[in-house]
Structures are given as C-alpha cells and as structure tokens.
Design a protein around this nucleic acid. Structure first.
Lengths: 132, 132
DNA sequence: TTACATGCAAATTGTTTGCAACTCA
DNA sequence: TGAGTTGCAAACAATTTGCATGTAA
C-alpha cells in the first residue's frame, strides 16, 4: 500500500480520538485543518486501515459503524441514551474462539460483544428529570 | 396493537424460516402468495414485532439486520463466506449482564455476541478449490 | 512514468415516512 | 365509526463507485 498523507491523517484522528468516532466524525475532525479532504477518502481509508488491522471497526445495532484505534482485544458498551461507546475489559471471554471452534466445527476468526444499557451519567440524568 | 393479516404473515414467515431472514427475504417469501404486500409493511411489522419481543432483531456487521423467531436467548455465528447465520448456545455468558453492571455501574439492558468465521461447509469448499 | 490515491458527484443500499385508501373492532 | 394499518412513492441516511486529476515511488 502506497503512502498517502490523507491515510496518515485518518489513522491519527482515530488514534487520538478515544470517542470511537463514526466515519462522519473523523471527516469533520480532519476537515478543520484539511478543508480539501473528502468523505469518500475518509471511508476508503477507514476501510483499508481496518482491513490491515491498524484500527478496529465496531458495527453497532442500527447505527453507523464506529472506529477504534485501540487494537488490543476488548469489548464495548453502548449507551442507549447518549450513544457513547465505552470500552470493557472481560477476561472471561479469553479462549472463547477456540472453545467454540472445538465444539461447533466453525473456523472462528473472531467475535464481538456489544453490551447495551445506560451509562452512569445518563442514569443520573434520567433520575433527575423523571421522578418515577 | 390491532390485529392485521399482514403482521400475522410476517410473524409466521420469520418463525417458519430458520434462515434468520433479512427484511427483504421476508418480503420475497411473502410476496409469492401475497403479491400485494409491500416492503414498507414488512419493515413496519418486523420493527413492531421485535419491539414487543415476539421476534428478535440481529444486527450484523456491514449487512442488513436479520430476524429470528427463536426468542430464547442465544448467540449467533456468521459465516463470512456464505453469509449464513447459525445459532449458538453458550451458557458461559449466563449472568454476564449482572456481572458487568456490578463492576462498571452501567445499567445493562442486554448484550449480543456475534462470532465470525467460516462454517463447515465453506471450509470444505475453500479447501477443495484453493489448495494452499 | 505509472500505479495507486484523491476529490467530486452520482449511484447504491437499506430503511423510514407522508398520505390517501382501507380494515379491524 | 374511527384509530390503526396498508400500499405506494418519495425521502433519507450511510456508504460506495466512476472518473478525471493528482501524487508517491
């Protein structure tokens, strides 16, 4: 893969923004200092970088994909209220792929776990505004 | 919720087709015997039925959502080759929600696990055609 | 010099919505 | 009767693609 300045920028933006940005967010972040960059280029590079494992694509229920520059295996929690994604360590699932492969015959390449719920901040906000 | 013939048909189609159909597949299945049915109605009813818990919506990476008439909690394995979705029982994860809630303060409403890989049939096919 | 990458706009895909007609209760 | 439902078409959002131009090696 040939070097490109735009790809470098996309990689940096994902690494430096631990908010698990969408493609569109990456685009807007970069657009500030690079007004000429195009959304198509951001998409192309996000796809390339996740194919080569330099970043991780997080598919979420009913929403645009998010991207994560933190490539050590971990899981995600999605707040149904504010839409933020939080990291989750869970050693429980170490070895899960091998176990599933052995018991099912499926050649497992990976797995992803998404936990849905309400983050502490939104629980607080909900309790404040609606006293039910 | 008022009864409707179309909703009944959608529910039956999802229950009777264990292929974890997409909205579009449900539409085409029903269209054979009900040529007047519309895709919008299928979508509306799939959403209603999954909101009421009569069927389960399975969001998949980069693909349209799938639907499952099998409502007992279980997980899914996605074949990256043929796109088929297989059921997976995994008692390991019983109690996971409570555990995460206790350790993170997140008010957990549920979780979903998607295992990716190659199903036995596609492993076979791959081994046949490309001897690497 | 040339194969790969970009920017732009148009095309696709998956899904939702507005609205008039229709149907279940 | 009347609120909920339908079919159709148009609207949407997220993402991808075609193509002429630009750029790293």
């Amino acid at each position: 893969m040939k070097y490109s300045r735009q790809r470098e920028l996309v990689l940096q933006a994902v690494r430096e923004n631990s908010i698990h940005p969408t493609a569109d967010q990456v685009y807007h972040i970069l657009k500030k200092d690079n007004p000429q960059i195009s959304l198509a280029t951001v998409y192309r590079n996000l796809n390339l970088l996740s194919q080569t494992g330099q970043i991780v694509k997080i598919p979420l229920p009913n929403q645009g994909d998010r991207f994560d520059g933190h490539t050590v295996p971990h899981y995600h929690m999605l707040c149904q209220q504010c839409g933020q994604v939080f990291d989750l360590q869970l050693s429980l699932l170490d070895g899960l792929d091998e176990q599933i492969q052995a018991s099912t015959g499926f050649a497992v390449t990976g797995h992803q776990l998404i936990v849905t719920g309400y983050c502490p901040h939104c629980q607080q906000a909900g309790a404040d505004s609606t006293a039910h």
